[in-house]
Simulated scan of single mutants.
Amino acid sequence: MGFHEVRFPASLSFGSVGGPERRTEIVALANGFEERNTPWRHSRRRYDAGVGMRSLDDIDTLIAFFEARSGQLHGFRWKDWADFKSCVPSAVVSATDQTVGVGDGTTNEFRLQKRYASGAEGYDRAICKPVAGTVVVAIDGAEQAEGQHWSVDAGTGVLSFTTPPADDAMITAGFEFDVPVRFDTDSLMVSVDGFQAGEIPDVPVVEVRV
């Protein structure tokens, strides 16, 4: 599978609809109870890029982007305007937003992640497409200098330290991130007359595992 490290135009994804989906298998038992299981450890996000189209120029930009990705063939970055920061959308990213690991004096690579918590339960989502220039890192609350103490691979979300963090050192990070996606169709159906009348094309986009 090919992946292009290019972001779908953020001005067009703004206003789109979508979000995470889960897959749950439910078996109803004879006694009225039910068993629930899932084959998915991680959620998968879906969006409709067509909702963000507001003009014929937007359609032209969409077609160019679609053709450059060869339809479903190549993945790309997507900005989820409802969830693109390590903190809440209204806050400013800080180096203590998310815990990404605990030092052991040996390990010098850690993957960025974001935790979604509600009560005592939570879900840790691996972040593999951080936005370059937005990542900040701290060890035990002390911010570390990029390039001097650490670096990050914007294509994988792996954080690398020049010197392994000390034993029991708390490693935290803040960042903006994109979602790796692909088009979920190999065709675009666009009607100029229909679009001018207020109709929008259906442009499904789905998250991919990378």
Results as ranks from 00 to 15, higher is better:
144 Q>F: 13
118 S>G: 15
57 D>W: 07
120 A>D: 15
145 A>K: 07
35 E>D: 13
31 N>A: 06
83 D>E: 03
180 P>T: 06
84 F>Q: 06
17 V>Y: 13
152 V>N: 06
98 Q>R: 02
124 D>T: 09
70 S>Y: 07
25 E>T: 09
102 V>A: 10
10 A>E: 11
5 E>T: 11
105 G>E: 00
151 S>G: 13
50 G>R: 03
77 R>Q: 11
102 V>D: 12
100 V>E: 07
13 S>T: 02
184 D>H: 01
148 Q>L: 14
203 V>H: 05
133 G>M: 00
92 V>I: 13
30 A>I: 09
56 L>D: 10
18 G>F: 02
170 M>E: 12
63 I>Q: 08
176 E>L: 01
159 L>I: 01
84 F>H: 08
144 Q>T: 05
154 A>C: 09
108 N>M: 08
188 L>I: 04
100 V>Q: 07
183 F>A: 01
65 F>K: 00
75 G>Q: 00
124 D>M: 11
190 V>C: 04
153 D>A: 05
127 I>K: 06
87 C>I: 08
43 S>P: 14
35 E>M: 10
92 V>P: 14
111 R>F: 14
159 L>P: 04
60 D>G: 10
112 L>I: 05
12 L>N: 04
24 T>H: 11
115 R>E: 15
77 R>M: 13
71 G>A: 02
91 A>P: 14
51 V>L: 06
136 V>I: 08
185 T>Y: 09
66 F>C: 03
153 D>H: 07
85 K>R: 02
85 K>V: 04
184 D>I: 00
1 M>P: 12
34 E>G: 15
56 L>H: 09
157 G>S: 04
13 S>D: 03
95 A>D: 13
112 L>S: 03
17 V>H: 13
133 G>Y: 00
210 V>Q: 09
